[in-house]
Computed example of a mutant assay.
Amino acid sequence: MTTLQRVLEPTPLPPTIRANRVGSGDPLYAEINDFLIDEAELLDNLDLSGWSKLLAKDIEYNVPLRLTKPFREANGTVVRTVQHMHDNYDSLMLRVKRITDTRSAWGEDPPSRTRRLVTNVRVFKTDRDNEYKVLSYLLITRNRFDFDYFDLIPCERTDILRRVDGSLQIARREVVVDQAVIGTPNLGIFL
């Protein structure tokens, strides 16, 4: 791996250890599931200021490229050194500020109408007492202007949620879009 590839590749995610899975009847699972649903509501209602408060200051937010390959090469379909988004807290705040405080966000003015459907939530304890690995599926419907059609953006998300002062924050997010060619005209929304 070259030096440039190491710089561009995101921090590796912790392993998914099945023995550390938190069951759906556990209060922790319910809390994390509610957190994800509330986050989706903030984004769908364009409350980007409220959403930004859910982000850890050291967040890493990645949307890697997806490739189509034969079955025997299925493990190589996600390219993490080439990404649609590769953000940290500062760049995410610039995106939020650009949408909310400037007139230069033409890709989201007027804003998209979205619905985020979060499903198949699986929670795992990590080797850190205050961090949890959360796998989920996300389906976003997106409509623009007065068009009579909408985009569907199916994804799989991996989040690292961290408890800070009693509240959960998103410390890491990787979103793998199912499509190799994304059918929506831009990714001006948060996934």
Rank of each mutant, 00 (worst) to 15 (best):
T2L: 13
Q5A: 09
R6L: 10
R6T: 12
T11S: 15
P12A: 11
P15G: 06
I17M: 00
R21Q: 14
N33V: 08
N33G: 03
L36I: 05
I37S: 09
I37M: 09
D38M: 13
N45Y: 05
G50W: 04
G50E: 02
L55G: 01
K57D: 15
D58K: 12
I59F: 06
Y61K: 05
N62T: 15
L67I: 02
F71P: 02
E73K: 12
E73D: 12
N75T: 11
T77K: 11
V78A: 00
V79N: 11
R80V: 01
D87W: 10
D87V: 02
Y89D: 04
L92V: 02
M93T: 07
R98G: 01
I99Y: 00
D101I: 05
S104F: 07
P110N: 10
P110H: 08
R113Q: 11
R113M: 08
R122K: 15
K125Q: 10
R128Q: 04
N130L: 07
K133C: 10
V134R: 12
L135Q: 11
S136M: 02
Y137H: 14
L138A: 04
L138R: 03
L139Y: 11
T141H: 13
R142H: 09
R142I: 08
F145G: 12
D146G: 03
D146Q: 11
F147I: 02
L152I: 14
I153M: 13
I153D: 02
P154R: 11
E156L: 00
T158M: 00
L161M: 05
L161W: 09
R162G: 03
R163W: 05
L168Y: 09
Q169F: 08
R172H: 15
V175Y: 06
V176Q: 12
Q179C: 07
G183V: 07
G183L: 06
T184R: 05
T184P: 01
T184C: 06
N186F: 04
N186A: 05
F190T: 04
F190N: 03
F190E: 01
